[in-house]
């Protein structure tokens, strides 16, 4: 049980990943589908940050830090920040596509937005 608690962030990330994928794949509304994608993104970001976590550790700043103090890993935090920014850009771009699609098709239903196949 204690083991599960220690790995809680990873468990949560896994759950979020599955929830997000389920939404992205099964929801018929385009905006809801994009929300699912955002949840998947959050899951991956959470996984990244959690993988750098250490119990009883301080922020990785050397100034005024005690000699030999345990620090969390800074690399993953930098990566996550970058990934969040990229995620914001992709979400904004995809939402703008959705706006365009709605303007011309007057629908957001995934099953009706398939004029390319015709």
């Amino acid at each position: 049980m204690a083991d599960l608690f220690a790995h809680m962030p990873l468990v949560v990330a896994g759950l979020l990943l599955m929830i997000g994928l389920a939404i992205a794949l099964w929801k018929r509304n385009l905006i809801q589908m994009l929300m699912g994608l955002t949840v998947v993104e959050a899951a991956v970001n959470l996984f990244l940050v959690a993988s750098g976590y250490r119990h009883d550790a301080i922020a990785p700043i050397y100034t005024n830090a005690a000699e030999g103090a345990r620090m969390v890993l800074p690399t993953v935090q930098a990566l996550t920040l970058t990934a969040i920014v990229i995620g914001l850009a992709t979400t904004a771009l995809m939402l703008s596509f959705v706006i365009l699609i709605y303007r011309y098709y007057k629908t957001l239903d995934v099953n009706e937005v398939r004029k390319l196949r015709e």
Binding site: L30, F97, L100, R103, Y105, V113, R114, L116
Partner: peptide
């Protein structure tokens, strides 16, 4: 809208 659909 077709190109927007492809882009999406």
């Amino acid at each position: 809208g077709l190109a927007a659909e492809a882009g999406l």
